[in-house]
Design a binder for these strands. Structure first.
Lengths: 200, 200
DNA sequence: GCGCACCATGGCACACAGTGACGTCCGGCG
DNA sequence: CGCCGGACGTCACTGTGTGCCATGGTGCGC
């Protein structure tokens, strides 16, 4: 038994989530969060670089799962198929945490500052994905467009899944959206000179 | 002759741009900007809601041009064609301001906080575009995916245009990228033959 | 059991962003 | 001339984020 209560970071995350739900993001100070977690303001910033990040630290595992899935997709899979696999893996991961992620998303959706941070996370996921796809031999432009389409599908599908009216599984929603977006980045019909050499 | 020097907002924007270029964004305080513009800190916040926005206020005209172009695209134009028109109009607008926008972009690209704001601007453009496309009769999913693809193309193309090594016109770059991303959001119903996403 | 170094935490001071309330100066207008 | 309104300044304040140093358990060697 350590003197300090265990899982300080987790306590901060829980405290933040509940306080944001109670009073909203802007009416909650870092001192409030730290107090509820039994710590001080100064310690909060030892676990999180800023106030927004307290809601996103846990999503690091999502990013890792996503990128690992892209990396380990079959060698002959197309770019879209690789992204599809990542979407499927993500859907599975979220399936049994719906209650938590819904609550979290509800807070984000009413707080511009948190929406900004969400955009940043998605954009960095897309950039990383584009790099991974290029390493698989995908053309640079195609890789970047497919990667961004993948995160867009994730975002749209997730928002739709979380809606109270929705009855479908996340995997189903993502699958449908990907089909809509598929053919995306089809091979350009007419051969034209590529500006940049492909990885070959 | 009014007592106050004219174009206070413009002076603030110019002062901010030059100071950010000299010392960087984080080493420039709002007081510094206001002082160079011959104003006080308090007045800065009367023209801009926050420090980041001083670099983005001028891009409001871009947003307006983009949305107007979508709105006034021919009735029979497809979603992708409407976005293509918006890209072309944007390219034309930027063509004769390359020096200014390059300098501005160089600052943004080394400042995470400004990159965040840029993502927000692009995301809100994409959301607005999706709404406009839906009003033209485009399916909701298709509209959202095409809209986000459009802003992605704009972002990627712009970054490539600004690179010192680049010799192509922005319009050309955007055109090529759009062709890569075209076929995007093909009609969802018919099963299309799978193709490798890489360039043959 | 006894020290001891480590490390999570607290305390303090500070710079800066952003905001509200209020005062001030100038031009215009009757 | 006197009044009004708008652009600007001054002051005070909250809250974020950070550097520096003190402190007090904890687990380790002995």
């Amino acid at each position: 038994m350590s003197r300090w209560a265990p899982d300080a970071q987790g306590r901060l995350e829980d405290a933040a989530l509940s306080l944001f739900a109670e009073r909203g993001y802007n009416d909650t100070t870092v001192a409030d969060i730290a107090e509820r977690a039994g710590l001080t303001r100064r310690s909060f910033f030892r676990y999180f670089p800023d106030k927004r990040e307290v809601l996103f630290a846990r999503s690091a595992s999502l990013t890792k799962l996503w990128e690992d899935t892209i990396t380990h997709a079959p060698k002959d899979a197309t770019a879209v198929e690789a992204v599809g696999a990542a979407l499927a893996a993500t859907a599975e991961m979220f399936a049994n945490r719906k209650k938590f992620v819904s609550k979290r998303q509800a807070i984000i959706n009413v707080t511009p500052e948190l929406q900004e941070r969400e955009l940043v996370k998605l954009a960095s996921m897309a950039d990383a994905t584009a790099v991974l796809l290029q390493e698989r031999g995908v053309d640079e432009d195609v890789a970047r467009l497919v990667a961004h389409m993948g995160t867009t599908v994730l975002r749209i599908g997730f928002d739709r899944w979380v809606e109270p009216a929705n009855k479908l599984a996340l995997a189903t929603i993502l699958q449908q959206l990907l089909e809509v977006g598929d053919g995306v980045v089809a091979t350009p019909s007419k051969p034209r000179p590529r500006r940049r050499a492909t990885v070959a």
